[in-house]
């Protein structure tokens, strides 16, 4: 067993883990942060995408010990505080836009899709349709046909740009 320490969604945590434990299993089974999902065993689907020190990674391809000393951010830490009555107030623009543009159906790919999109927008704040599609090529959705995901990401990008300039 190996000791790991990291910050997950702003909370420090520390555990003895098997060296082979995948980061995604550490998040889901040890920390019980089940907002991040597993959709495959070949790193193709991207459902498990989280941020490791600010960059998106597929947490099924990272060992928990590799994340030792790092900051991990998942979809569960994305929303800020909200006013009474309307929790959507505190949502990240991507969460809002996936909701308003119907960028999700079953929602299983959504946490990974949102975290991948967040990384994309940090790199390219104003992507066109092709750039969004290519930027999300590591994340599979089986429900939406991607049209509304593309719309959601571009809607969120506009809101983030507006927020940055105001």
């Amino acid at each position: 067993m190996t000791r790991v320490e990291m910050t997950v969604d702003g909370e420090p945590c520390e555990h003895e883990v098997e060296p082979r434990l995948l980061l995604v299993h550490y998040l889901r089974d040890v920390l019980e942060k089940t907002g991040t999902n597993i959709g495959c065993d070949t790193s193709n689907c991207g459902a498990c995408t989280v941020h490791l020190d600010g960059r998106s990674v597929k947490s099924c391809t990272v060992l928990a010990v590799q994340a030792d000393g790092s900051q991990v951010d998942t979809v569960e830490g994305l929303a800020g505080p909200s006013s009474d009555g309307d929790e959507t107030d505190g949502w990240h623009p991507l969460q809002k836009a996936f909701h308003t543009e119907h960028g999700l159906q079953c929602g299983y790919c959504t946490p990974g899709m949102i975290m991948a999109a967040k990384d994309l927008l940090e790199e390219n704040p104003d992507p066109d349709e092709t750039e969004v599609r290519e930027g999300l090529e590591g994340n599979l959705c089986r429900c939406t046909g991607y049209v509304n995901i593309v719309k959601a990401v571009r809607t969120a990008a506009a809101e983030l740009r507006e927020g940055a300039s105001s």
Binding site: T36, N37, A79, E87, W91, G107
Partner: peptide, 12 residues
Amino acid sequence: EDAHLVTGRTQW
């Protein structure tokens, strides 16, 4: 349906 799905408060 969306609120719990976009925030990760899911019950798979």
